[in-house]
Simulated assay, not measured.
Amino acid sequence: MAVPKRRMSRANTHHRRSQWKADNVALQEVTIDGVAHRIPRRLVKAAQMGLVEVEQF
């Protein structure tokens, strides 16, 4: 793993961190009780089992 040789200035650190952006969660279309919903993939199984309220998405 790369290790910095010297301390990075506060301005450079903030500038580097400000460029990082999180991606939006990819939604998957799922039919539950005859109604199509778009929910995150990690919640599909829980939604099909009725453990998660689908209306909040």
Rank of each mutant, 00 (worst) to 15 (best):
Met1Gln: 06
Ala47Val: 00
Asp23Gln: 15
Arg17Cys: 11
Val54Ile: 12
Phe57Met: 06
Trp20Asn: 05
Ala26Leu: 13
Ala11Phe: 13
Arg38Ala: 06
His15Cys: 01
Pro4His: 09
Gln48Val: 08
Thr31His: 01
Arg17His: 03
Ala11Gln: 07
Ala36Arg: 15
Met8Tyr: 06
Met1Leu: 07
Gly34Trp: 11
Ala2Glu: 04
Ile39Ala: 05
His15Pro: 00
Val35His: 03
Asn24Trp: 09
Pro4Ala: 08
Pro40Asn: 03
Lys5Ile: 04
Arg17Leu: 15
Asp33Arg: 13
Arg6Gln: 07
Lys45Thr: 13
Arg7Ser: 12
Ile32Glu: 05
Arg38Phe: 10
Ala46Asn: 03
Met1Ile: 06
Gly50Ser: 08
Ala36Pro: 12
Lys21Glu: 06
Arg17Pro: 00
Phe57Asp: 01
Arg10Ser: 06
Pro4Trp: 02
Glu53Val: 14
Arg16Val: 00
Ser18Tyr: 02
Asp23Tyr: 11
Val35Arg: 10
Asp23Cys: 13
Val52Ser: 04
Ala36Tyr: 07
Met8Ile: 10
Trp20Cys: 04
His15Glu: 05
Arg6Met: 02
Leu27Lys: 12
Pro4Arg: 12
Val30Arg: 04
Met8Arg: 08
Arg17Tyr: 10
Val35Tyr: 05
Glu55His: 07
Val35Cys: 00
Lys5Gly: 06
Leu51Ser: 01
Ala47Lys: 01
Val30Gly: 00
Met1Glu: 05
Ala22Ile: 01
Lys21Ala: 12
Glu29Trp: 10
Glu53Leu: 09
Lys21Val: 06
Gln48Asp: 02
Ala47Phe: 02
Gln19Gly: 03
Val35Gln: 07
Val3Ser: 07
Gln28Ala: 15
Lys21Arg: 15
Ala46His: 05
Asp33Ile: 11
Ser18Asn: 07
His15Lys: 14
Val3Gln: 08
Leu27Gln: 02
Met8Thr: 01
Lys21Ser: 08
Gln19Ala: 14
Arg42Glu: 03
Lys21Asp: 01
Asn12Phe: 04
Met8Gln: 01
Val44Cys: 09
Pro40Gly: 02
Gln48Glu: 14
Phe57Gly: 03
Leu51Ala: 05
Ala46Gln: 08
Arg6His: 01
Lys21Ile: 08
Gln56Ile: 15
Met49Asn: 13
Pro40Cys: 09
Gly34Met: 09
Gln28Pro: 00
Val30Tyr: 11
Ala36Glu: 11
Thr31Ser: 13
Arg16Ile: 00
